[in-house]
Nucleic acid binder design. Structure first.
Length: 565
RNA sequence: UGGCCCGUAGUUCAAUUGGCAGAACGCCUGACUCUGGAUCAGGAGGUUCCAGGUUCGAGCCCUGGCGGGCCAGCCA
């Protein structure tokens, strides 16, 4: 689509825009649009002669002051930057064009192509007709230019209450495209605008503001989602009418074209701003940045990286087919990126005490541990080892099934980077719960190498009890328990599909001391467990860690398969 | 029941614009490994929604169906 354009149209210029309405937080669906709009010109930059404009604007579609807030504007800018995109000087607001839009509305009125309608919203709706029947003309449709000019001026001055009058364009009440049945382009809203304050009490509708904003900015490719397809004839109509009246935008740009693509749908989550808001308001999540939310700030807190999200957006492609992408693809992109960058550490989520019987009490050794096998430049670190350790409770079984090659009585495993140990004794409390394991270590296996070359199947992670840092770990799962949360019976709600186990908090987890210096946002891999990041809730007394995602776990699949029969 | 858009592997997308239907993810098998991770190799998986037509040749063009989406805000 865009290749055709780079060979000729618009003089080679490619100017796109990302046009959020500042009425909520950006989510992964917006990321698709951001990557598309910013990515297109970025990728074309070196294929175009010097001096030819190739860029993406950030434009806030702030035409409805009732729903929009500065808070959202700030968060949107932060999120777009975080994703790795830069709009340079090209930050705009539809509200920047309110004066121009007003002037152009006058042009339409003078040309007899717009009129003030005194009917109320209900009446306008009723007379618009239906999908199969034409609408009826408003009794005010034939007002004189002078009367329209006068009324519109008085609308602007604030002489009329909200909802009493609107400015409509005169197109075709019988059009099969409902958007062409004399759409409203101005409504009266006595509301304070975050940017223009009380200057206006009439505000342009989306259709009137969007295309003309594109035109003013010299946008060449106005890329939006599928539901605006039916608006394209209107988009074109406005510009054609203005051109017919001899209007040119200040920049004298040729007219922009609108293109549509399918918005992102992700399984196991929802993307609707309204429903997201419902989750927040209803206390089903802790806020917009809850790590289970598909919002960009939620994903960021969860430990997602901009690279992972961008790669995901590249992978899913762009079509007009209304598709549902599996979350597993997003998670694959996440792991792919984290695998390359996340430093490895050892952490024990569900600690089980291990005493090395034949290891001297009070002695401490430090072993070299590789920070990232995928990145030699990441170097190594020292990990302390002593007589009393913690291992993962799941890494010991008193009575193991076949093909279980972790610790069990009599079996030898490797404590990663440290020693080979063999379980000798199981200690239990009165209730029969295992409270600790005793092992013997092979002093000749220092560093984890079998002196005689004997094969040791299992390698498990551990943390020295005396040196461990306590941590609270938050384990996340999909927010919804089924692929399509909106798939509910007639009287049901998407809330019925919330996954009750989407958050599990583990207290008393033990992590290696190297994590002491890491601050909020720090990402790492707990070996064999998954990727984790430090949550902003962390205090000097309480380390809080989010599990970003698990590692791919073949054993869990095998075990699950057996259980499931 | 009007108009517009879309139908290719379980999923997301390709197919040099009419020339042997492919990739990635997922799934399965194997190799390797001091992460049961990663990596590597292999495998299964298709009536290209259906039916006609044009053509030497159709996923692609034409006609008609079927299925899905969007549109009746003074939201965007």
């Amino acid at each position: 689509m865009e290749q055709d354009v780079s060979d000729g149209r618009h003089g080679g210029r490619v100017i796109t825009r990302f046009p959020p309405e500042p009425n909520g937080y950006l989510h992964i669906g917006h990321a698709k649009s951001i990557c598309l709009n910013f990515g297109l010109p970025r990728d074309l930059a070196d294929k175009v002669p010097a001096g030819v404009a190739v860029r993406c604007h950030l434009r806030f579609d702030d035409t409805n002051p009732i729903k929009e807030e500065q808070e959202y504007i700030d968060s949107i800018k932060e999120d777009v930057r975080w994703l790795g995109f830069d709009w340079g000087e090209h930050e705009y607001h539809a509200s920047d064009y309110f004066d121009q839009l007003y002037e152009w509305a006058l042009v339409l009125i003078r040309a007899g192509k717009a009129y003030v309608d005194d009917q109320d919203g209900e009446t306008i709706r009723l007379t618009r007709g239906t999908l199969t029947s034409p609408g009826e003309a408003s009794p005010y449709r034939q007002r004189s230019v002078e009367e329209n000019l006068d009324l519109f001026e008085r609308m602007r001055k604030g002489e009329f209450p909200d909802g009493s009058r609107v400015l409509r364009t005169k197109i075709d009440m019988a059009s099969p495209n409902l958007n062409m049945r004399d759409p409203v382009i101005y409504r009266i809203l006595h509301a304070r605008h975050p940017r223009t304050g009380d200057k206006w009490c009439i505000y342009p509708m989306y259709d009137w503001a969007h295309g003309q904003s594109d035109w003013i900015e010299g946008v060449t490719h106005s890329i939006c989602t599928l539901e605006f397809e039916a608006h394209r004839p209107l988009y074109d109509w406005f510009i054609e009418q203005l051109q017919a009246e001899g209007v040119q935008p200040p920049a004298a740009a040729d007219r922009p074209r609108q293109y549509e693509f399918a918005r992102l749908n992700l399984s196991h989550t929802i993307m609707s701003k309204r429903k997201l808001l419902e989750l927040v308001r209803g206390g089903h999540v802790r806020g917009w940045d809850d790590p289970r939310m598909p919002t960009l700030c939620g994903l960021r807190r969860r430990g997602y990286t901009p690279e992972a999200i961008r790669n995901f957006c590249d992978t899913i492609g762009v079509t007009k087919y209304n598709a549902v992408t599996e979350v597993s693809l997003l998670e694959h992109c996440l792991r792919d990126d984290l695998n390359r960058r996340a430093p490895r550490v050892m952490g024990v989520l569900n600690p089980l005490k291990v005493v090395i019987e034949n290891y001297p009490d009070g002695e401490v050794e430090h072993f070299d541990a590789v920070n990232n096998p995928e990145d030699p430049a990441a170097g190594t670190r020292k990990v302390p080892f002593s007589r009393v350790l913690y291992i993962e409770r799941e890494d010991f079984m008193e009575d193991p099934p076949r093909k279980y090659f972790r610790l069990y009585p009599g079996n030898e495993v490797r404590l990663r980077y440290a020693y080979l140990v063999t379980a000798t004794k199981v200690v239990k409390d009165e209730a029969g719960h295992i409270t600790e394991i005793h092992c013997r270590y092979d002093p000749d296996s220092r560093g984890g190498n079998a002196p005689d070359g004997r094969k040791v199947k299992g390698t498990i992670h551990w943390v020295s009890a005396a040196h461990a840092i306590d941590a609270e770990v938050r384990l996340y799962d999909h927010l919804f328990k089924c692929a399509d949360p909106d798939d509910v019976p007639e009287d049901g709600s998407f809330l019925d599909n919330l996954n009750p186990e989407s958050l599990k908090v583990s207290h008393g987890c033990k992590v290696e001391p190297s994590l002491a210096d890491a601050g909020p946002g720090h990402i790492c891999q707990f070996e064999r467990l998954g990727y984790f990041c430090i949550d902003p809730d962390t205090t000097p007394e309480n380390l809080v860690v989010n599990r970003t995602c698990t590692l791919r776990d073949t054993w869990a699949r095998i075990a699950g398969r057996k259980q499931g029969g």
